[in-house]
Design a protein around this nucleic acid. Structure first.
Lengths: 128, 128
DNA sequence: GTAATGCGTGCATATGTGTGCACATATACG
DNA sequence: CGTATATGTGCACACATATGCACGCATTAC
């Protein structure tokens, strides 16, 4: 067996850990379902709504929409509030923006190291 | 049957369409798999590598890693270059940053409209 | 009070997806 | 030339997930 103890760049190691930490699997899982994206679109269009209203005109059963909304809430994408026998759901805009902002902040330094098959910018370049 | 022709806010409608358009299902699908995230972490740590190197130390079979890399490339997350009998994969940092930047630009106006159960900032507030 | 409405959940099922093995192809090595 | 290595793919299989239905619970309407 080979002893490939290649010394890893500490900077790369740190960024790699940051990226892995910020890549919330639940968040992306919630967004990779077309039906859930459609629910998001409707919530933006009409604002906060109850389950029945959101499910109006969609082919899936109301119970399916209810489950999707619960999953979106667990992922921090929606928030809910009970109002009588109805439950109003709405997008959690600030939290979504915060999440994406965090991701962007972490992947920007990564991008400086990962420019495939092109000259990577050195620390004193880019002042074009 | 009720005739619920509720006039939708044109601004909301436009933002909703923008959000739905920018939410690339393939992109999120690629990122919601723990094994693919681990591959990303390794690529950041050691830089561009071939399939065999990436698969070293991972429990999944090399063919599985190959498939994940192909999927990541279709999603624009990695890029590949043939080098002899090997195929080097590397993260496509700039494209990833561009994608996330686009998403952030679209969801920021959405967030101003979707602040659940809190007073939404009007256009002349926020100058605190 | 009873009936009706809205919501979430257990259950069964169809579809999607990750995984490993075997094999074919392409390239390097001798 | 033949052999070894690296990669991708067809196939079968295990597991996850989305879906619809029926039901129970909570709340409103009557």
């Amino acid at each position: 067996m080979r002893n490939d103890n290649i010394p890893v760049d500490p900077a790369r190691l740190a960024i790699a850990q940051d990226v892995k930490a910020v890549l919330d699997t639940d968040f992306f899982t919630a967004l990779c379902e077309p039906v859930r994206v459609e629910i998001i679109r409707r919530l933006i269009t009409v604002g906060a709504s109850d389950v029945k209203t959101i499910a109006q005109g969609m082919v899936q059963d109301r119970s399916v929409i209810s489950r999707h909304l619960a999953m979106l809430e667990r992922a921090g994408i929606t928030a809910s509030r009970k109002s009588g026998r109805r439950v109003e759901y709405d997008l959690n805009g600030p939290d979504i923006v915060a999440k994406v902002t965090d991701i962007l902040a972490v992947i920007e330094p990564m991008a400086r190291l990962c420019m495939p098959y092109a000259a990577q910018k050195s620390h004193n370049e880019g002042a074009a």
